[in-house]
């Protein structure tokens, strides 16, 4: 591996760099995917506190608008099982480093605990509809940018634009990245996509929407150079 740099030490895009990555234990064995990420409000803002894995986390993201319904059904599929709708949780304390996968400091046997589900989820933040102060639709949350603060990764800004999460394909991080035709297409599609500081946005977790305090063109700077 040429790039063994630990991404947890720098700024990351939650969806691009962390979500859906392979979880690898201390012996190199696989124990799942990062099916969702738990966010907890703290002094600095929303911090990444745990990784969630398993069907109860994945099903919600797979379902889109039907996500909550699917999770309920998932629970009803086996009523005798307690807390079936809670995903498996893996505290960030157990994460050693993040590169092309998430490497843990422990073995995979009995490391998961089923106490996820209380906190907020990156999976529900992604794709939330974003509104201008006057109520016009500004776009959707395409990704969320985190920065390290006191050994935790804290939410600093949101990428807002058209299309769905993942449609940036990673080009917001390096717009010179090839192949040229593809980069140009993504740049064209996301010419109005902007990075908004999290202090300029109010996230309503129950309505699953974000309201900006200033108009998007004013509040955010372009995510990709045109």
């Amino acid at each position: 591996m040429t790039d063994t740099a630990d991404r947890l030490q720098g700024s990351i895009d939650g969806l691009l760099h962390l979500m859906d990555r392979q979880l690898i234990d201390v012996d190199g064995l696989f124990l799942g995917k990062v099916d969702d990420v738990e966010l907890t409000a703290g002094d600095d803002g929303l911090a990444i506190t745990a990784l969630l894995t398993g069907a109860a986390a994945l099903v919600g993201r797979l379902g889109g608008r039907l996500g909550d319904e699917l999770i309920t059904k998932w629970g009803q599929a086996r009523p005798a099982e307690p807390h079936r709708t809670r995903p498996w949780r893996l505290s960030m304390d157990l994460v050693d480093r993040l590169d092309s996968a998430v490497h843990l400091t422990v073995g995979r046997d009995e490391v998961l605990s089923r106490d996820g589900g209380e906190g907020l989820r990156l999976g529900s933040l992604a794709g939330m509809t974003v509104f201008e102060p006057d109520g016009d639709k500004a776009g959707r949350v395409l990704d969320a940018r985190f920065e390290p603060r006191a050994a935790r990764l804290v939410l600093r800004s949101l990428l807002v634009g058209r299309g769905g999460p993942g449609s940036l394909l990673g080009y917001d991080r390096r717009s010179e990245q090839g192949p040229r035709v593809l980069a140009t297409l993504v740049r064209l599609w996301h010419r109005d996509t902007r990075v908004v500081d999290v202090d300029d946005a109010d996230i309503d977790w129950t309505l699953e929407q974000v309201r900006l305090r200033e108009r998007l063109e004013v509040a955010g700077k372009r995510a990709l150079d045109v």
Binding site: D3, H17, L169, R174, P179
Partner: peptide, 13 residues
């Protein structure tokens, strides 16, 4: 094609 262009994965390759 996209990931083969991503230096995060590929470094100098």
């Amino acid at each position: 094609l996209v990931v083969a262009n991503d230096p995060d994965y590929m470094g100098e390759h």
